[in-house]
Structures are given as structure tokens and as C-alpha cells.
């Protein structure tokens, strides 16, 4: 079941029957709006969330969230090692379940057994909450308006 929760700043995010142990922070980009500037993550973005699953069911739920996330994730392992990368695959097969991750500086993917994972940090920018259609249409309309003003002013 998916609930909508709010963080300390009042922003909504989906909560899949899991309570992150840490408060959920959001990144606020301060770059001025331009064509290449990343937008603030959408209300539904998991960017900044941290999950520490306490049961197998919770683990599976977080794995699905992490698998669907279009940004890098930092995994905190039970060995205290921390590893960062893009989680592109999960193979769920009971105790043999594992995740596959592309790390930024490694050509080959790394397999990480699910039983070794302590926490999931959604650390990377959520690339799916990028420039919106509405923003593009708005920008295009403004350009057209400016073109018209320049033309009439010349």
C-alpha cells in the first residue's frame, strides 16, 4: 500500500509502508532556470530518502523503489562498506536474491546479495524528474512573445 507522507518541509513523497529512520531531505537547486538547469525534484521523487528495511517484506518493497529510481543509490552494507551506483537489476530468489549495480568508475556491474544490505540512500539526482513538458511549452510561448516584441520594437 502506498501512502503519501510529508517531510519536515511539508513536501509530499510516496511512502510504501516503510518509515525511513532518517528525516527525508530534499535538494533545492539554486541555479537560475535555463534550458540546461535541472529542475527541483517533483513532489513524488524519492531523492534524498533513506530506508532501513526491518523485515524481508520491507526489503522487497525498498528494492522495488530502488529499481525504479532513475538516479544513483548508495547502499550501506552490513559490513559497514558503503557503495554507490545505479541499480539496474534485481533478481529476487529467496535467500539468493541480489541486486546489480553499475558503479561510476567500474566497467562491469557489481552483484550485491540482498542479505548483505543494511540501508538504501537515494543519494543521486532523480533524472526522471527533469524538465517538464509544461516548462518547455511555457518557455516556447515566452520566446514567441519576445520575438514578437523585438519585431514590433525594431
Amino acid at each position: 500500500m502506498v501512502r503519501v507522507c510529508r517531510n519536515r518541509e511539508g513536501h509530499a513523497f510516496p511512502q510504501h509502508d516503510l518509515i525511513p529512520l532518517f528525516p527525508v531531505f530534499r535538494f533545492h537547486f539554486t541555479v537560475p532556470m535555463s534550458q540546461d538547469a535541472p529542475e527541483e525534484p517533483s513532489e513524488k521523487s524519492l531523492q534524498g530518502a533513506v530506508f532501513r528495511p526491518g523485515s524481508q517484506e520491507e526489503l522487497l518493497n525498498v528494492v522495488e523503489l530502488a529499481f525504479g529510481y532513475r538516479g544513483d543509490i548508495t547502499l550501506e552494507l552490513k559490513s559497514r562498506e558503503s557503495t554507490n551506483g545505479y541499480l539496474f537489476n534485481r533478481v529476487l530468489d529467496g535467500p539468493r536474491s541480489y541486486l546489480e549495480m553499475f558503479q561510476p568508475d567500474h566497467p562491469c556491474p557489481r552483484k550485491i546479495p540482498c542479505r548483505e544490505i543494511h540501508a538504501f540512500h537515494f543519494t543521486g539526482q532523480d533524472t526522471a524528474s527533469g524538465k517538464s513538458w509544461e516548462a518547455w511549452v511555457r518557455k516556447r510561448q515566452e520566446e514567441r512573445k519576445n520575438e514578437g516584441q523585438n519585431f514590433s520594437g525594431s
Binding site: 532513475r70 538516479g71 544513483d72 551506483g85 545505479y86 539496474f88 553499475f102 561510476p104 568508475d105 543521486g124 539526482q125 533524472t127 526522471a128 527533469g130 524538465k131 517538464s132 513538458w133 518547455w136
Partner: peptide, 18 residues
């Protein structure tokens, strides 16, 4: 390009470099 209807390109830079 970054077409509004495309869901194929939303990845971190190091994935796009592969």
C-alpha cells in the same frame, strides 16, 4: 535531444556514458 515524450534517456551521467 531531450524529447518530452521519451523515457529512454533519464539516467545518471555515468550510465549515459556507457
Amino acid at each position: 535531444l531531450a524529447c518530452a515524450g521519451c523515457g529512454k534517456i533519464q539516467y545518471p551521467e555515468h550510465v549515459l556514458d556507457r
